[in-house]
Design a protein around this nucleic acid. Structure first.
Lengths: 152, 152
DNA sequence: TAACTATAGTTTAGTCACTAAACTAATTTT
DNA sequence: AAAATTAGTTTAGTGACTAAACTATAGTTA
């Protein structure tokens, strides 16, 4: 034992922090290239992410989408224009406010949404298969705490 | 109990999978804006990531950096040019191969590298403070398994 | 009600972080 | 010596944004 306890502790922390960094890089890499979802053709990560944020619930405003994605309204205008031209998203007039546009998924958009969700579930199932029930719970709690930490 | 067991299981999986998605989004958001590190001025996420990949070890080739970052050599040329002009990275001639360039951090680059590492350690310390030793270990193992899953 | 103010969304120009493909120059292999 | 490989650069183009100026409608206030 040449290393002091303190050095060893730091080494451990660094390993954990580096692994988390590596996980992030891996996730980014995976989500880098366009992929096909359901009936939709190949979608870029931002495109499928936008579809996911619109969701299958009730129609939302452009500004609501901007806030869900934490991007500007201008960016939303551009993205929605593209998705609309590909027939994945539709705009309908707001019944009370003629400035507003109501966004929702077309059937093709819903199909992409479902396929994407399914992919995530399937992936998460693979992780579950490698851990015990107790480990999964601890992991999920840690992920939640990490999220909270990041919000502040 | 109106839900079937299967539905409940699916709900749990979805919660976990969504949380992991949320964590990813939070990490991306955090790493979106330029920040200052050490003696270096504000650096974009890609810039500090490049500095981190070069590291303080022995000098590396452009192509080695490209493979560490999983980007093309052309992208590395562009990025290194910028970091070099800001005096964070330096190129030295390879003693045996005159095609090659050896990359290393300047003292200012090292200072940014250290500050960035320190930030990560500090952040990870905050997580450690919220979990028991055992939980940390389970979490780290899960993160490692997740990385492996993603590689395949 | 006319005049302000706020809000919903669009447009434009510009930036960052890339890629693909064609290229130069040096090095190995045959 | 010729051919093939490797190290790195250059260029044109794309995706995903932002900031700021803008239009059009909707509330609010004087």
């Amino acid at each position: 034992m040449r290393n002091s306890l303190k050095e060893n502790r730091e080494f451990c922390e660094d390993r954990g922090s580096r692994n988390l960094g590596r996980l992030f890089v891996q996730l980014q890499r995976l989500e880098k290239n366009p992929r096909s979802f359901g009936e939709a053709g190949p979608l870029t990560p931002s495109e499928i992410h936008t579809i996911d944020a619109i969701g299958c619930g009730k129609a939302i405003l452009m500004s609501e989408l901007a806030s869900r994605l934490s991007i500007t309204k201008g960016a939303v205008t551009q993205m929605v224009k593209r998705l609309e031209s590909r027939n994945l998203v539709q705009r309908t007039a707001h019944p009370e406010d003629s400035r507003a546009a109501l966004l929702s998924l077309t059937p093709k958009g819903v199909s992409a949404y479902r396929a994407h969700r399914q992919d995530h579930l399937h992936f998460y199932d693979q992780l579950r298969a490698k851990l015990t029930q107790e480990e999964i719970e601890i992991f999920e709690t840690a992920v939640e705490k990490l999220c909270e930490l990041l919000k502040s």
